[in-house]
C-alpha cells in the first residue's frame, strides 16, 4: 500500500485549478433518422461557455482572472452563440462519419443555457450506424470529458484518449451486436454495483460476527 501511495504521488502532476461549482458534466446526445445524424452538445457548467467565448474571441480575455477562474455573467451565452467562430469550432470538434465518408454538418438549433447546440449531419444514404468524434473543450483543458448517450440507451465516454465511438443510429432494431444496448448497460451497471454492494455487506457482516465472537471469548 505504501508503494502504491508513493507511486501515486509520483504520477501526480498538479494541473491548473478548475474551479467548478457542482454541476452537470459536458454531454452529447446522439440521434437521427433517415440518413441524418443529430448531435446535441451541452457544455455542462455555464462558466465553460464563458471560457469558450473568451477562447474564441467572443468575450475579452480580461474576463479570465489571473488565477484562471471565470465567472459566468448574463449575456455570455448569447455572445458565444452570436460568434461565427462558434459554429466552426463545433463542426471542427464534432464530426460524423458513415461508412468511410465524412458527413457534412451544420448548426441547426442553439439554446446554450437550455437544450444546448444541435448539429445536424447529412449522411446521404440511410445511416444505421455512424462513427461520431467529439473533442469539444479539450483545447481549454485536457481533463474535460464528454458523457454521451445514443438511441436505445447506448452510452459512452469521450476524453482525450478516446475521441471516437461507433453508434447505432437506427436504435434497437438495427443495433449491431458490438454496441451496448440500453438494457445491457443497465444490467451491467446493476451487476457490477450489486457485486460491490454484496461484497461490502458480506465484509461488514463478517466483521460484526467476528468482533462479537471475539467479545464473547474475552
Amino acid at each position: 500500500m505504501l508503494a502504491a501511495l508513493v507511486a501515486a504521488l509520483a504520477v501526480l502532476a498538479p494541473g491548473p485549478a478548475v474551479a467548478h461549482p457542482f454541476g452537470d458534466p459536458q454531454t452529447v446526445e446522439i440521434g437521427g433518422a433517415g440518413g441524418e445524424v443529430r448531435v446535441r452538445w451541452r457544455a455542462g457548467g455555464a462558466d465553460d461557455l464563458t471560457l469558450l467565448a473568451v477562447s474564441l474571441g467572443a468575450l475579452p480575455a480580461s474576463r479570465v482572472m489571473l488565477d484562471g477562474a471565470v465567472w459566468y455573467e448574463d449575456g455570455d451565452a448569447e455572445a458565444l452563440a452570436a460568434s461565427p467562430a462558434f459554429e466552426d469550432y463545433l463542426l471542427d470538434r464534432i464530426a460524423v462519419t458513415a461508412g468511410t465518408a465524412a458527413c457534412p454538418g451544420s448548426l441547426t438549433e442553439i439554446d446554450l443555457l437550455g437544450d444546448g447546440a444541435t448539429l445536424t449531419f447529412g449522411c446521404g444514404e440511410r445511416a444505421d450506424t455512424a462513427t461520431v468524434e467529439v473533442r469539444t473543450l479539450l483545447d481549454l483543458h485536457p481533463a474535460y470529458r464528454t458523457l454521451a448517450t445514443g438511441p436505445g440507451g447506448q452510452r459512452a465516454v469521450y476524453d482525450r484518449t478516446t475521441a471516437s465511438h461507433d453508434w447505432a443510429i437506427a436504435g434497437e432494431p438495427g443495433t449491431p451486436a458490438a454496441l451496448p444496448a440500453s438494457s445491457e448497460v443497465g444490467r451491467s451497471a446493476a451487476a457490477q454495483l450489486g457485486t460491490v454492494g454484496a461484497v461490502a455487506l458480506a465484509s461488514v457482516l463478517g466483521g460484526v460476527l467476528w468482533s462479537r465472537r471475539r467479545g464473547r471469548r474475552a
Binding site: P25, R145, V157, P180, S188, A189, Q192, L193, V196
Partner: peptide, 16 residues
C-alpha cells in the same frame, strides 16, 4: 464525476 463516468464507460463497479 468518477461514478457517472464509470456508469457511462461500463466500469461502474470499479468506479464505486
Amino acid at each position: 464525476l468518477v461514478l457517472v463516468t464509470g456508469l457511462f464507460a461500463g466500469r461502474s463497479g470499479f468506479a464505486l
